[in-house]
Design a protein around this nucleic acid. Sequence first.
DNA 1: TTGTATGCGTTATCAG
DNA 2: CTGATAACGCATACAA
Lengths: 335, 335
Amino acid sequence: MSTIKDVAKRAGVSVATVSRVINGSSRVSPATAKKVRTAVAELNYRPNLLGRNLRKTRSERVLVLIPNIANPFYAEIVKGVEDVASQHGYSIMLCNTDSDPEREKRYVKMLKSRLADGAILMASEMTGEELTELSLEIPIVQCCEYKAGLPITHVSINNEMAAYKAVKHLIGLGHKKIAFIGARNQFLSSLRRKEGYLRALEEAGIDFDPACCAYGDYSYESGFRIMKQLLKLDPRPTAVFCVSDMMAIGAIRSAMEENLLVPEDLAVCGFDNIHFSSMFKPAITTVSQPMYDLGCMAMEALINIIEGKKEGTAEYFLEHELIIRESTVKQDSVC
Amino acid sequence: MSTIKDVAKRAGVSVATVSRVINGSSRVSPATAKKVRTAVAELNYRPNLLGRNLRKTRSERVLVLIPNIANPFYAEIVKGVEDVASQHGYSIMLCNTDSDPEREKRYVKMLKSRLADGAILMASEMTGEELTELSLEIPIVQCCEYKAGLPITHVSINNEMAAYKAVKHLIGLGHKKIAFIGARNQFLSSLRRKEGYLRALEEAGIDFDPACCAYGDYSYESGFRIMKQLLKLDPRPTAVFCVSDMMAIGAIRSAMEENLLVPEDLAVCGFDNIHFSSMFKPAITTVSQPMYDLGCMAMEALINIIEGKKEGTAEYFLEHELIIRESTVKQDSVC
DNA sequence: TTGTATGCGTTATCAG
DNA sequence: CTGATAACGCATACAA
């Protein structure tokens, strides 16, 4: 492994000159520049990032903490993050926390140890206090999931409105007994979606029945299990709003096991518009979040903070869209 | 941000002593150790990784290049990689290449720039020559997909045998006209799976029909599109072996559009046993790769190379399993 | 335009 | 057991 010194020696110049040629930081005569470049090529030299980062006290690297890389929802967000990052010369480190606070802490520790210039947090398990403290030490942005009332920039959608529109769609189809499969956690999105559900019900003059509400963890399995229980209610719900597509698919499989038809016997609405939601049979009615744009916006906001272009915290809300498919409305066309 | 100097000053000792306490590298008297520790706590000091890495010329970090984080198949592998890595004090950087050679090159450049001590490559787009050259510079391991005949350690399954067993299963069900949806790429797995398909056919005395073979990119869309074409054959294939579950699901949706029943009119076998393959209706018959173990093994092999415990290259083949579900055999039970 | 010298934060070597 | 100091590889202020 050759260093900048080796290059300097071979080119017969000082290390400073080599550095200048590599970084284009100031003018170097074409002749010496050429000498340097050939030396670089001959030695197959690559600047050592460890040295460069230390010298600059900046890594031009950003951590992206995601709770679960297996969730395709996050994959699309990450694409947006990556694209904006590379446009600005940043590289990203994906960190899969598995929603495990210990794992998350390990990554946060790396962050505090200056391994990266900042971070995007997707669904942090940290307390509001911990988050606030972290944000004082190093630039962070919350994406999608966020804790309320914190002085931390976040990017999200209007979850209350999204849930309201989804449930209103079900009501518009004539449903009166609409179940709700939410998420058992303290994220604001969970609260807001429940609020949207309640508002739609109230507006339609439908009494809220607590027995119709249950809470899972966004997974297929939890949707399956919970729907199983909800279908035992008498009278049975004729529709269900799930706060994730995975749970919606679980709910549908549950209904199938009971020999119920979707959407005829049970209309099912999901949330997220993951790729699979259109592949599944029946295709899932769902709320589409602008995942790619959420990622882009989060990264842009983070860069602004890192580079000091923006002071203070900001809230960004991006547009969502209700996508109606076979799981709520019988359709002729498929795919 | 406080540095080791600040701590030393506050504790009234030298930086060397602080370093010793932090790393436990040599004996320090309990009294001074305590002084140091309180100073560390008071200043909320965290060693700067940039400095430490430079000094050690090691980062205890490993790159994991995956072609597509949206593919749940890789997610499970990454879990294995992560678990072994953290057991050995390594942290991993996930790099999503999107099968884009340019993107991959950027990450490889970081690797060559010593940002990490080594890498696990999942489905590299690099040429054999590039790979070999890279492996000379820095420790790498190929996982799942690999190029043949390279002096690079790899971890995989016996793809020929897996495909053979899958197709033999279809033959055992009485199918005579069995289509093959492979992958259009130069990975050895693609070749081996085709070979397994051919061997099973030959053994059963079934003539190979090139018209029955087509090639996609593992995606749902390609499976859908290709099956559409294959179903136009006369006579129609009564079974199809796909080299990914995603393509199998695409094939099934294609059959559904033609009002064909699965498995009655078309038996479909996939590959990978991704989570969704059991959630789909009908549940997909597939070949299960030990994804978690593949990840573990790859990381263990890499650590051995990095730490110089193992010389030369090795080939590891892990066990696979054929999982029979509804898409090939009509079953009473679901899920 | 180019070279010299310094320091980024840490760990390791060598004395004491 | 502890301290002074060099070195890791690089970028930059300053001098020439």
